[in-house]
């Protein structure tokens, strides 16, 4: 097989990884603070849409990215306030926020652009691509790092920063403590409610970033429900990475590769089959890497439904 072809697959995998990595990091910060956030999907989708909308109006990719992050944060704030402040059941809030954002973006798509289904226009300004000074001269490496946007590089930096924040700073220690034992935190005057809402808002911002990386990364367009389960795949990546930002990078790369595999084999295998690959890969990965950590996980899984009825 042509080595350049392989490298281009890797390159495509790197680009597919970004949204998943961001969603996984968002999931991690929520989990670490003791919140189960299922609304990642919605938080991403709003980012995808707002990014394109602001891009269309201002022709500025930078503003578009910032607006997407803010929009994600706002949805995150809604989720956080409902789940943490009002103790609403996480599954209920998560699924309905996902549906709400799905509907909202479809309506806004019609209001802003007057179209239904999706929006694509040559006037949309794509993100600038990073040209690495030395590497772009080297034949193979240039293929590998071809066409990556600043958003792609920055996502790894964010993962490392999150690692340092959680495990090396005082604030991070407090966030972890809230996740471990809420009463202990409160006995020291650390507000669990505030910390958790802040974590969910941060997750919203991360997802907004992930969403805009999706709508303005490989392509520059918006389609209804274009996140297609990536928020949940991010949850799976977070699960595999055991809530550790560094491990999450590798888990997300795996899912990025399965995405790229699906995209590159489309011409040889019917697309209906290849499209299902990322989803099958997610389930398989969760099965293969399941350690028998059953006891702990069982508890959290079942507590979810408790508040529903």
């Amino acid at each position: 097989m042509d080595i350049n072809y392989v490298l281009s697959v890797v390159n495509s995998a790197l680009r597919s990884t970004t949204p998943i990595l961001l969603a996984a990091l968002a999931s991690a910060i929520c989990t670490r603070s003791g919140v189960f956030n299922v609304a990642l999907e919605g938080q991403m989708l709003i980012g995808s849409f707002v990014g394109i909308a602001v891009n269309w109006v201002t022709h500025s990719p930078t503003l578009a990215v910032l607006a997407a992050i803010v929009a994600g944060g706002l949805v995150g704030a809604l989720v956080g306030i409902l789940q943490v402040r009002y103790n609403a059941a996480d599954m209920v809030v998560g699924t309905s926020v996902n549906l709400l954002v799905g509907a909202l973006t479809a309506i806004l798509l019609f209001v802003v652009f007057g179209v239904k289904g999706g929006f694509k226009d040559p006037a949309l300004v794509p993100l600038p691509k990073v040209k690495l000074p030395v590497i772009s001269e080297i034949p193979y490496l240039s293929t590998l790092f071809n066409n990556l946007s600043p958003l792609d590089y920055l996502s790894y930096v964010i993962a490392i920063v999150m690692y340092i924040y959680l495990f090396k700073t005082v604030k991070g220690y407090h966030l972890l403590s809230v996740g471990v034992k809420r009463e202990a935190a409160e006995s020291m005057g650390i507000s669990a409610v505030k910390t958790r809402i802040a974590a969910v808002i941060a997750s919203g911002c991360l997802c907004g970033y992930g969403g805009v990386a999706l709508s303005m990364g490989q392509v520059t367009l918006f389609a209804e429900n274009m996140t297609a389960g990536r928020g949940f795949i991010g949850m799976a990546a977070c699960n595999l990475g055991k809530n550790n930002p560094i491990a999450i990078i590798f888990a997300s790369l795996f899912f990025g590769f399965s995405d790229a595999f699906a995209a590159t084999t489309q011409n040889t295998i019917p697309s209906q089959l290849t499209q299902s690959v990322p989803y099958i890969a997610t389930i398989l990965a969760l099965i293969v890497f399941s350690r028998k950590r059953k006891k702990k996980a069982t508890k959290t899984e079942e507590s979810k439904a408790e508040a529903v009825s």
Binding site: I233, N239, A297
Partner: peptide, 13 residues
């Protein structure tokens, strides 16, 4: 111990 939330959602697609 694969979360039902994730697996059932993936299986929709």
């Amino acid at each position: 111990n694969v979360s039902i939330v994730i697996s059932t959602l993936m299986m929709n697609y």
